[in-house]
Amino acid sequence: MFKTQAEAQEFLQGFTSHLDETPEDREVVLCVPFTTLGIMSKSLHGSRILLGAQNIHWEDSGAYTGEISGPMLLEFGIRYVVVGHSERRQYFGETDETVNFRLRAAQRYGLIPILCVGETKQQRDAGETEQVIFSQLEKDLIGVDQNNLVIAYEPIWAIGTGDTCETKEANRVIGLIRSKLINPNVTIQYGGSVKPNNIDEIMRQPEIDGALVGGASLQPEDFARLVNYQ
Rank of each mutant, 00 (worst) to 15 (best):
I39W: 07
I39M: 11
I39G: 08
I39Y: 07
I39H: 08
M40P: 10
K42D: 15
K42Y: 06
K42T: 06
K42W: 11
S43Y: 08
L44I: 07
H45A: 15
H45F: 09
H45M: 13
G46H: 06
G46P: 12
S47Y: 05
R48P: 03
R48F: 11
R48I: 10
R48Y: 08
I49V: 15
L51A: 14
L51D: 15
L51V: 12
L51P: 03
L51E: 10
G52V: 04
G52W: 05
A53F: 13
A53G: 11
A53N: 12
Q54S: 12
Q54T: 04
N55M: 03
N55D: 14
N55P: 07
I56K: 01
H57C: 10
H57V: 07
H57L: 09
H57N: 13
H57D: 12
H57S: 09
H57F: 11
W58K: 09
W58P: 00
W58I: 04
E59S: 12
E59W: 05
D60K: 05
D60V: 03
S61C: 01
G62Q: 12
G62N: 09
A63S: 05
Y64W: 11
T65E: 04
T65Y: 09
G66M: 09
E67A: 12
E67I: 04
E67V: 04
I68E: 13
I68H: 13
I68W: 14
I68Y: 15
S69Q: 09
S69G: 05
G70A: 11
G70H: 06
P71A: 05
P71K: 10
P71R: 14
M72E: 15
M72P: 07
L73H: 02
L73Y: 01
L73G: 10
L73S: 09
E75V: 15
E75D: 13
E75A: 14
E75R: 14
F76H: 15
F76V: 15
F76D: 15
G77M: 06
G77H: 10
G77Y: 04
I78G: 06
I78D: 06
R79M: 04
Y80G: 14
Y80H: 15
V81R: 03
V81P: 02
V81S: 10
V82E: 04
V82I: 01
V82H: 01
V82R: 02
V82F: 01
G84V: 00
G84H: 05
H85Y: 03
H85L: 02
H85S: 00
S86V: 09
S86Q: 01
E87P: 02
R88Y: 06
R88H: 14
Q90S: 00
Q90C: 03
Q90E: 02
Y91I: 10
Y91W: 06
F92S: 08
G93H: 15
E94R: 01
E94H: 04
T95P: 05
T95E: 01
D96W: 00
D96I: 02
D96A: 02
E97L: 14
T98A: 10
T98F: 12
V99L: 08
F101S: 13
F101C: 12
F101M: 14
R102V: 00
R102G: 07
R102P: 00
R102A: 00
